[in-house]
């Protein structure tokens, strides 16, 4: 019994290690400027976690087998050891807090650093169950919107055409183009319930909370088409709420935008 349990625990450790180091799948390839640091932080954490996991489980298996009830053996009578206890506290506290602090760099870069002036602006407006994207056009200004003007077919985000800034706004459905290697500044909104804008390849996820205009930014480093998924339960067709992020060269992007503007 003791040996069987020990072997099972060790087998679980081996299987986990094999699963996480073998060719069983990993993060989708990443294409953003901040993504590399994020993945690196994950890998660093993985090492710390693996050490803790393996040490604890292997020790558990070993003790289970080593200290099984054998005739003649007598249990050690001890109430613990304060020194070892303090050492555990110190080691884990230093490791965990250091890890937390190191991990904040990426977060600070994502959320607390100023954006350059020439960033491309995109407004994301989520709704049940689609993504609307709006570009401010050549004037760099988003026109006013109004709730009463919203019409899912004709005017999905309710752009007020009387506002001069709105005349060159471009609104697209489920397809978002951005130029490669440029800073993109997002404003995330929702028309109805909470959604979450998630692009796995970008390592980017941000809830679109109704009533709020949540800022976000990223820089894509590789052209191509990537999927956008909704990550926050938003209703019946949550699992079908799909969009595409198209990362293209500057020229292609300008042409794409122009084409939509004329439409």
């Amino acid at each position: 019994m003791a040996l069987a349990l020990a072997i099972l625990i060790w087998a679980i450790v081996l299987a986990s290690v094999a699963l996480f180091t073998g060719e069983f799948g990993w993060f989708p390839p990443q294409i953003s400027e901040h993504g590399e640091a994020m993945d690196a932080q994950f890998n660093l954490t993985l090492i710390v976690v693996a050490i803790g996991f393996i040490l604890a489980q292997v020790a558990l298996g070993y003790y289970v087998w080593r200290y099984r009830d054998r005739s003649g053996a007598r249990a050690v009578y001890t109430h613990g050891n304060a020194k070892v206890e303090v050492a555990t506290v110190l080691i884990t506290a230093v490791t965990f807090v250091t890890l937390a602090i190191i991990g904040q760099r990426v977060w600070i870069g994502l959320h607390l650093e100023d954006m350059p002036e020439d960033a491309v602006q995109v407004e994301v407006t989520a709704q049940q169950f689609a993504w609307n994207f709006r570009y401010p056009g050549p004037d760099g200004k988003f026109g006013k919107t109004a709730t009463r003007l919203i019409n899912d077919q004709l005017n999905p985000v309710g752009v007020d055409s009387r506002d001069p800034a709105s005349s060159d706004d471009v609104v697209t459905l489920n397809r978002m183009a951005v130029p490669v290697n440029r800073d993109i500044r997002l404003t995330l909104r929702s028309k109805d319930v909470t959604h979450s804008f998630f692009v796995p390849a970008l390592r980017f996820k941000q809830d679109t909370t109704p009533g709020l205009a949540v800022p976000g930014h990223f820089k894509a480093l590789k052209t191509g088409e990537y999927e956008i998924a909704c990550a926050e339960l938003c209703g019946l067709q949550h699992y079908k709420m799909k969009g595409f992020l198209m990362v293209m060269s500057d020229q292609e992007f300008e042409a794409w935008l122009k084409e939509r503007a004329e439409f």
Partner: peptide
């Protein structure tokens, strides 16, 4: 122990939900 991933702001972004 996997809470160590999720408790970190930056790692959580990708793994959240």
């Amino acid at each position: 122990i996997t809470g160590l991933f999720l408790g970190q702001t930056s790692v959580d972004v990708q793994l959240h939900d």
